[in-house]
Design a protein around this nucleic acid. Structure first.
Length: 229
DNA sequence: AACGCGACCAACATGCCTAG
DNA sequence: CTAGGCATGTTGGTCGCGTT
């Protein structure tokens, strides 16, 4: 099932920093799906980038061409949620470590069944912890917090319409803690939505450009030389 | 004591978007 | 056109814990 890539490994295995990607291809240096300006799109011809990290997405591809899974707290399954990432392919660069994003290939991202309760509890504590604390704190955790808050009030699972209605109000359910969230996932009341990531191509020219540019970039930013990129 | 690892915390800047 | 706010985050530091 992995996509076969015919590119010499000393080119294929060269990873880059987000700072470098921001400067050469645009987008902010944090987002998983950074928005790319028209200007940068015109310049590079690329605007579909995806930068998963392995803590929140332990099933991200780690080897170019390999398939993977992308997780998201959508409050409902990927099949039920609004259509995202349906058109076109994405250049996936997985964060393998600090300053270490590696191009995996061109990926199609398609809805799948949500993570089961068992699949959640089998995950590493660091992964579950990360999701719980982020969902408690971040704006994008609001749907999950709302569902948990409503479940408490109603003594039953809220409908999607009820969740949507609640997000129209000022109530952001910030009193729902990371521990509350963690318990809700442990009980299977909340589940992470899942998308499959399938490699359908590999942009050799893109990777060759990265290698060529990163060499110059690192040389100019780290004149000492002995800095991993 | 030293070391490695993970958890945790706070600082961080820049491109992009939206409101005016 | 400009100003301000936002971004499923990254980074580097500290701390606690268990191992060497």
């Amino acid at each position: 099932e992995p996509y076969a890539i015919a590119l010499e490994s000393d080119v294929k295995d060269v990873s880059v920093r987000r700072d470098f990607m921001r400067i050469h291809y645009g987008g902010n240096h944090q987002s998983t799906f950074p928005a790319i300006s028209e200007e940068n799109y015109t310049k590079t011809g690329h605007r579909n980038f995806m930068y998963p990290n392995l803590v929140q997405n332990p099933e991200s591809p780690m080897i170019p061409g390999a398939p993977g899974l992308f997780l998201n707290a959508a409050g409902r399954s990927a099949r039920e949620s609004e259509v995202k990432w349906a058109s076109g392919t994405y250049k996936v660069l997985t964060r393998l470590g600090t300053h270490d994003f590696l191009y995996m290939g061109e990926y199609e991202i398609r809805p799948a069944d949500s993570l089961t309760r068992a699949e959640w509890t089998d995950q590493a504590p660091a992964m579950r912890n990360r999701w719980s604390t982020k969902l408690a704190k971040k704006d994008w955790g609001r749907i999950t917090r709302t569902r948990i808050g409503l479940r408490r009030q109603l003594k039953r699972n809220p409908t999607w319409a009820e969740v949507e209605a609640a997000t129209e109000t000022a109530q952001k359910f910030t009193y729902i803690t990371a521990s509350d969230i963690s318990k809700a996932f442990d009980k299977g009341e909340e589940r992470l939505a899942v998308w499959t990531m399938k490699c359908v191509g590999y942009d050799e020219q893109f990777q060759r450009d990265l290698v060529r540019q990163i060499t110059d970039w690192v040389a100019s930013h780290f004149p000492g030389g002995a800095v991993a990129f």
